[in-house]
């Protein structure tokens, strides 16, 4: 069985189980919260300054709910014996899940932002903010996946705590803030600072490092 076929088989299984779970509905409710916030602050002066920060909170919650929880439920559940006893390279489990769940998170974050901007400010969201949030959602998804492998039993909680700490680190006025992906997203969107290329590098390095760590560790996991 080729790795590509393994990834596709895992992706199909992930999609089936995801659709038949409550997770998509919970994620939709969470993604609707910034839209509700925008509706409440419609026309208010503080909308412009606060709305992006509120939207960034989705990066804290959605990847943890959709990705970390999915991976940890498989790894912590003894049903994983059915996967590990198949002729699959273990890393294909992680990639197969990301193939399905990462686009879901990215689309939900972007759709939430577009809707919130349209309702709160009565205008279309800029390409820069949409691109930054999409990149941030993808990065946060990769980080959540890596963290879920590091601590399978507490993956979702760990992912949320990490992203909350990430927000705090993003407030530190030094180069260390570049390891914060919420800070990087704000820079990419042009909301703060003025060095998008450096922020992009920071985002790619941090999220890739966590994903790579997860991919390396999953190969040694036992059931």
């Amino acid at each position: 069985m080729t790795d590509g076929a393994s990834i596709l088989a895992i992706a199909r299984l992930t999609a089936w189980r995801f659709v038949h779970s409550r997770t998509p509905w919970i994620a939709l409710i969470v993604a609707a919260l910034p839209v509700a916030f925008a509706a409440a602050l419609r026309g208010h002066a503080s909308f412009a300054t606060r709305s992006f920060e509120i939207e960034e909170l989705l990066l804290v919650v959605l990847p943890a709910i959709a990705v970390a929880a999915s991976i940890t439920s498989d790894l912590d559940d003894r049903a994983v014996t059915y996967l590990w006893s198949r002729p699959l390279a273990r890393w294909t489990l992680m990639v197969g899940k990301l193939v399905v769940l990462a686009p879901f998170v990215v689309v939900l974050v972007v759709a939430s932002w577009i809707a919130a901007t349209a309702i709160g400010a009565g205008e279309l969201a800029s390409g820069a903010t949409i691109g930054a949030l999409a990149a941030g959602a993808l990065g946060a998804t990769m980080i959540s996946a890596g963290l879920a492998i590091v601590a399978p039993r507490y993956g979702m909680v760990l992912a949320i705590v990490y992203m909350l700490c990430d927000s705090v680190v993003g407030e530190i006025p030094a180069h260390v803030q570049l390891v914060s992906i919420t800070h990087d997203v704000a820079e990419l969107a042009g909301v703060t600072g003025s060095s998008p290329p450096v922020a992009a590098i920071g985002l790619v390095v941090v999220s890739t490092a966590w994903l790579a760590h997860g991919l390396r560790k999953i190969g040694r996991l036992e059931a």
């Binding site: 076929a5 088989a9 199909r12 299984l13 996967l83 002729p87």
Partner: peptide, 12 residues
């Protein structure tokens, strides 16, 4: 049937 089918797929 779904379970056995999907696990057969995963088995190659």
């Amino acid at each position: 049937f779904d379970l056995v089918t999907r696990l057969a797929e995963l088995a190659g």
